[in-house]
Every structure is written in C-alpha cells, then in structure tokens.
C-alpha cells in the first residue's frame, strides 16, 4: 500500500521536474523580447479599446507610444491628464497639454418641440432608420433617438432620456473618445472643448432647411436668422446653410447669443444662474478653484484672438 503511494508520488514528481526543465528551456529559446514599458503603459490605460486614439485598442496605443519619438498629438482621449503625465514619465518624455473635451448633442428636438409626423415601425436602430427614411418628424436632420450612440459608448456615458427622447451625455463619464460621433448617422453629436468649469455654449441644431421649414418642423430649430452671429463680439459664430455654428476655440462664453436666439436653439450648460436683466460675463481666469488647464486654454484663446486681429 505504502509502496504504491510512494511510487505514485515519485512518478508524479519526476514528471513535474521533467516538464519544468523542458518548459524552462523552451521559454528561453522562444523568448519574445518586448519593451516592458508597453505592458506598464497598457495597465494605465482604461482598457475599453474604444479606438478613440486612432490605434487598434489600448495595446495598440501603448505600442505606438513606446515606438514614437514624439508623443505630442498622441494620447488616450479617455484618460485624465495625470494618467498621460504618468505615461510620459514612463517614456521619459514630456506630455503635451490636452484640452479636455466632451461629446455634445446638437439637437433639441424633444417630443414637445418636434412633433412626430410619421410612425416608424422598423428595427430600432438609427443606422437602419436613417438608411430608409429621413426620420419620423418634419426634421430630416435631427436626432432619431434609437440610441446607436448609447450602444457605441464603451464608458456608459450616454443615455437616452425617456422624457425628451434625446441622448444625454454624462459629463463625469464621457471621455470624448468619439465613438458616439462615429456611430451617429445624422452627425448630431460633436466633440467640443469641455470649457472652463465645464461651461459650454453651443448651437443645438443642425437643420439645414430654410428657416420657415425648420421652424415648422421643430420649435427649437435654428432658423439661420444670423442674429447670434451679429451679436457675437468675438466672431465665433458663423451661419452656413441656414444653420449657425459656434467655434468653441473662439467663444468667450459671454452667453449673449443664448439670450438673443429667437428659437432658443443655443444651449448653455453649467453656468451660474443669470442675473437679470444683464447677462453676466464670467471670468474664469480669476476664479481660484479653476482647474490647471483653464488658464492655458484662455491664453490660447487670447493668442488666437490676437492673431485674428492682426
């Protein structure tokens, strides 16, 4: 009995030893020499493989970063500046300053603003709906509300609000990777600068129809009247194809356009409540709790402005 046990133990130990020796030599022979920094960088990245950086997944970015001589312009849109600084440290390089960005939804066509004129009864997918029909309202440009952006988001940062039927971006979760922008067949979503203290102003409409047509379809449509463009002191607003667009690199967040828009098509977010009647111009540079990147951005804005004046 005891003999059997001993023999078994001995045989198993011998097999184990033999296997260990073989494995050791094989691993020596077929060793893959890899930059250890790739693994380190990869572990810092979110691992969502969203493709927002332009490389095939997080490992792709890590490899590209390790190989690149100049890492400016490369980086993970889903990671914070601190993470990018850490990665730069691993590589022994300087991280380029990144202006934080976020996805914004350029449509205010809620169920109230934009009445349904048709009943869509096909598969609940924006890609399918838009390939077959312009939409189930009078507006052939706006959000369809079937949530292709929600499916595309790897960070759970965008949801369809059941009351309005429009997508809502979660500021805390959005990494501005751009997956929703690519998923939206109507190009409703745009990646814009997050703005100082998350304050942003943008035109919530992309309807290129003539004013009257657009207005008939949706009460919050941009009618291309150009009032905002005239009002804007910084030349940030252009009107093209009957729709206004605010250049976020020029916008100074004065909010004059928001107040003046006759259809309330311009959205503002995260501003302190307005003091009636005059709109307050916030000066983020002077506020103490502003994030580190805000002054930089403001400085950039200023230089651009100077350039324009020249």
């Amino acid at each position: 009995m005891i003999n059997t046990i001993l023999i078994t133990v001995a045989v198993l130990a011998a097999i184990g030893l033999a296997a260990a020796i073989i494995l050791y030599f094989v691993s020596q022979k077929f060793k893959v020499v890899e930059d250890p920094r790739i693994g380190e960088i990869e572990s810092l990245l979110p691992g969502a493989n969203c493709g927002g950086c332009g490389f095939p997944g997080c490992r792709g970015l890590a490899e590209a970063l390790t190989k690149a001589d100049d890492i400016s312009g490369m980086g993970c849109p889903g990671s914070s500046a601190e993470v990018m600084a850490q990665i730069a440290k691993i590589l022994g390089k300087e991280a380029s300053a990144k202006v934080p960005q976020i996805a914004v939804v350029r449509c205010k066509g809620t169920c109230q603003n934009r009445q349904k004129t048709l009943e869509y009864d096909g598969a609940k997918s924006c890609a399918i709906a838009s390939a077959n029909f312009a939409g189930d309202t009078g507006c052939s440009f706006g959000c369809l509300g079937y949530g292709d952006c929600v499916t595309a988001c790897r960070f759970d940062a965008i949801q369809i609000d059941s009351a309005t039927g429009l997508p809502v971006v979660d500021e805390a979760k959005c990494t501005s990777c751009g997956a929703c922008v690519r998923a939206c067949p109507k190009q409703v979503i745009e990646i814009r600068n997050k703005g100082p203290r998350n304050m942003r102003v943008w035109v919530s409409c992309i309807n290129k129809d003539k004013g009257a047509v657009a207005r008939k379809a949706c009460t919050a449509a941009c009618i291309g009247c150009g009032k905002c463009a005239k009002e804007c002191a910084f030349g940030a607003i252009t009107v093209e194809n009957n729709v206004a667009y605010i250049d976020f690199t020029k916008c100074k967040l004065c909010r004059k356009c928001v107040a003046d828009c006759p259809t309330k098509a311009i959205s503002e977010i995260n501003f302190p409540p307005r003091k009636e009647p005059a709109a307050e111009v916030p000066k983020p540079e002077t506020k103490p709790e502003v994030k580190a990147e805000a002054p930089k951005e403001a400085a950039q804005d200023k230089t651009e402005q100077i350039k324009e004046q020249k």
Binding site: K116, T117, L118, E119, Y120, D121, G122, A123, I128, N132, F133, D136
Partner: peptide, 8 residues
C-alpha cells in the same frame, strides 16, 4: 388623419 406608418 393620424400619422402614416413607415417601415422598411
């Protein structure tokens, strides 16, 4: 008249 139905 109620809305027309559209589907592929």
């Amino acid at each position: 008249m109620s809305n027309l139905t559209i589907s592929p």
